[in-house]
Design a protein around this nucleic acid. Structure first.
Length: 760
DNA sequence: ATAGGGTTAG
């Protein structure tokens, strides 16, 4: 290009500039290099311009997909008296098609009819391509049907049209038809139908195409082999992809990308990353698509170190200017729980796309920063970025975590206003959100109105019932699900077993556990074993639970012994509790919660020396107890209380009210349960109990709301026994409904009873 | 020929 520019003065000097052939060649060369600026600089000063000069410039603009420039130049051309030829139209049509500009494409269509090209094969193919690219495949087909004679290109155009519009069956049908009419599918035909079979995951069609490729001996073409391996990967037949990949004589970066992304999409992060490394070892330069696949794998496997390595490569190969790559990086950091790193990238990102906003918002929502997610949603709207269904899913997830019913109604209303509430993902998130905000019946109402449901939709609803203590409803819903055509998955069984556990449905829970393997060939995971131990242990069948652990075919994990220890606390079993705790301290010596649980078991049994021993152990290891807090929503703000906290502006009022309240519930029969506290005076014990975060939050809620209003409390740990009992009495004497969402489930307190039936 | 962000559980 530079050399060509340097030649220019020389050409002018030698008087060659007036040669038509030279001019045309020069203009066409500049166009080929993509420098229309230089081409026009040569073009303009020419005094007697021959028609091919005009055609070349027009082709240059059109091949750059610049519709505006093409049309402007086209008008100028006609003003200059040049008669359009059919290729002028086909090139402009191509530019319109590439820009999905069906409006201006139609104008060109009208003009070419006026110029007498209406039955020209190339012109018709151009119009067909325009309609096919602009999702108007039926209009394209009408055109195709009208064509008096058809060449290979127009067959390929209509076939790729059906293929790209999600109708691969029709595309394949046409492939057969073209053969009947004497045309053999070529490379273009094949590479245009392969992606479609992959996208609809139809390996049957894919295989038949593979057969044809084999018979025609086309397997050795790189792009054919790549398209084949990509198709198999998308159909979930990753081994078949690998076979093709391994046998390829030569591979392009695209071949590697397809293979790496194939592994990443099929959940085999390790193989994806191994292959990525192998590609680097072979000295190949990764492209933007390569790193996106690798980052996907890092995110899936929560492999921060590997993710940071890929990040370095992004910098080294200067791939960071691609916003899609940056979005993948943001997403990777979020999945690896490094929201701060993701935010840093997001802030620095100059041209943020909707996906960038959505990725960071979901990162906030999934990493315990719901407020930040909601705030970002507002600032996104201030930046006039239009939210889509992905955005809503993120915000709804955040609201679910926040557990504030007022917010839930707000985002639900907003999603209706944006007509996104019927999207399955949004609707599923809404069902889950209402359940998590304590509005289980509203969740069910929404669930019933949905016309499409995913397995996750059922899971969310079943789990909602479970955490609310509606075991029978959960079982009923599960049975309904089995009658339909959506199969339960691992998560479904986790939800239903834990629902049984919360409601004491031991027999049903065991039935489901057996069912998962026998009827659905699902192998129980560690979480399922944990849920079973919880089911048995919570119901008081501690020996059976212990026996179950001994009989497990795999080494029991932390959650399994954790469930056992929790059950021992509820049922005051010191011996089994000690055994479970021993295992836990081996498996996870740093976790404070289990130490506290064991200490509580000893305390209930008045084994104070052992309590002291555990506390010493914790001190020695430097383990701290997770501080418990309760939060309540009031006037657009979430008020959070820690035990004994006095920093709240209304603190004095809260404590005074609480004192009155405790007196009242004592009159009604409440007896403080100080069994887990010792080594202080009786009145101090009570003092400690009375300043638990739940009680503070409830008082605050009662003071600040009108009589009859339901109070929603969110607690990060489990509700303690005394608070549970006190809350029952509070609901009785104040005639208020109090809904507490703790770490594991909901408690609806009303008229002195709790929905959990004291079974939690 | 390849391509970024989504719902459930723990």
């Amino acid at each position: 290009m530079k050399e060509l520019q340097q030649f220019l003065p020389l050409i002018i000097k030698n008087g060659l500039y007036n040669e038509h052939l030279f001019q045309t060649k020069l203009v066409s060369l500049f166009c080929k290099f993509g420098s229309l600026y230089d081409a026009v600089k040569v073009f303009e000063p020419i005094e007697s311009k021959i028609d091919p000069l005009y055609h070349t410039i027009l082709k240059g603009y059109a091949l750059q997909s610049d519709v505006d420039a093409s049309l402007n130049f086209f008008c100028r051309m006609k003003r200059d008296g040049v008669v359009p030829v059919v290729y002028n139209f086909t090139y402009i049509l191509k530019a319109c098609a590439d820009n999905f500009d069906v409006r201006r494409g139609k104008e060109i269509h009208a003009q070419l009819i006026l110029n007498g090209f209406s039955s020209n094969l190339f012109a018709m193919t151009g119009v067909m391509n325009l309609y096919a690219k602009c999702k108007a495949i039926h209009d394209a087909y009408k055109m195709f049907d009208r064509m008096p004679e058809k060449d290979l290109v127009c067959w390929n155009t209509v076939i790729s049209g059906f293929s790209q519009n999600g109708m691969p069956n029709k595309a394949l049908e046409l492939v057969f038809k073209m053969q009947e009419e004497g045309h053999s599918p070529d490379l273009v035909t094949i590479v245009s139908i392969l992606p479609a079979s992959g996208n609809i995951k139809n390996s049957r069609i894919g295989r038949s195409i593979h057969g044809y490729v084999f018979r025609r001996g086309l397997e050795s073409y790189v792009n054919i082999a790549t398209a084949l391996l990509d198709m198999y990967a998308k159909c979930g037949l990753i081994e078949k992809s690998r076979q093709i990949f391994d046998r390829m004589g030569s591979r392009t970066v695209v071949s590697w990308n397809s293979m790496i992304d194939g592994y990443a999409q099929s959940g085999d992060s390790k193989e994806a990353l191994d292959l990525f490394q192998k590609m680097l070892d072979e000295g190949l330069k990764p492209s933007n698509v390569t790193v996106m696949g690798a980052l996907h794998a890092c995110a899936d496997s929560n492999d921060l170190k590997q993710g940071q390595f890929v990040h370095e490569l992004v910098d080294r190969f200067r791939l960071g200017s691609d916003v899609n790559v940056m979005n993948s990086l943001i997403s990777m950091y979020c999945k690896c729980k490094r929201v701060n790193l993701a935010v840093e990238l997001f802030r620095k990102l100059k041209e943020k796309t909707l996906v960038s906003w959505n990725a960071i918002m979901l990162g906030y929502a999934q990493n315990g920063c719901p407020i930040e997610a909601i705030n970002l949603f507002s600032s996104m709207q201030q930046n006039s970025v239009k939210p889509d269904s992905f955005t809503f899913v993120s915000v709804i997830t955040a609201v679910a975590d926040l557990s504030v019913l007022r917010r839930a109604k707000w985002i639900h209303g907003l999603s209706i206003r944006k007509s996104l509430h019927n999207d399955v993902f949004v609707a599923t998130a809404l069902v889950d959100m209402y359940a998590k905000c304590g509005a289980i019946h509203k969740a069910r109402k929404l669930f019933d109105t949905m016309n499409e449901r995913h397995v996750t939709t059922w899971n969310a609803m079943i789990d909602g019932y479970g955490t609310h203590g509606y075991g029978n409803e959960a079982v009923e819903l599960f049975d309904n699900m089995c009658k339909g055509n959506i199969k339960p998955n691992e998560v479904t069984f986790l939800c239903i077993i834990s629902a049984c556990s919360h409601s004491g449905l031991v027999k049903e829970g065991r039935r489901f556990f057996a069912m998962m393997k026998e009827n659905y060939s699902l192998e129980p995971s560690m979480d399922h074993y944990g849920a079973m131990v919880d089911l048995l242990g919570r119901a008081g069948q501690l020996e059976k639970a212990w026996e179950f652990i001994q009989k497990m075919p795999v080494a029991p994990g932390i959650n399994v012994y954790g469930a056992m220890l929790g059950a021992c606390k509820i049922h005051k079993n010191v011996d089994l509790g000690e055994m479970a705790a021993d295992k836990l301290f081996d498996l996870e010596p740093e976790e404070g919660g289990y130490h506290v649980l064991l200490a509580n078991i000893y305390a209930i049994a008045s084994m104070w020396d052992k309590v002291a021993k555990v506390r010493n152990l914790m001190e020695k290891k430097g383990i701290q107890k997770t501080p418990g807090y309760s939060s309540v929503d009031f006037k657009n703000e979430v008020h959070t209380f820690f035990s004994g906290n006095t920093s709240h502006p209304q603190s004095d009022k809260i404590y005074a009210y609480l004192e009155e309240l405790i007196d009242k519930i004592k009159e009604a029969g409440y007896v403080p349960d100080t069994s887990s506290i010792h080594d202080v005076e009786d009145d101090v014990q009570e003092q400690l109990l009375n300043t638990h975060s739940e009680k503070l939050a409830i008082s605050f809620g009662l003071i600040n709301t009108r009589p009859g209003t339901t109070i929603h409390i969110r607690k990060n740990l489990r509700v303690c026994g005394d608070c549970h009992n006190a809350t029952k009495y509070i609901s009785l004497v104040t005639e208020r409904e109090i809904i507490v969402r703790d770490m594991h489930r909901f408690h609806h307190f009303k008229n002195g009873v709790c929905s959990c039936g004291d079974y939690w």
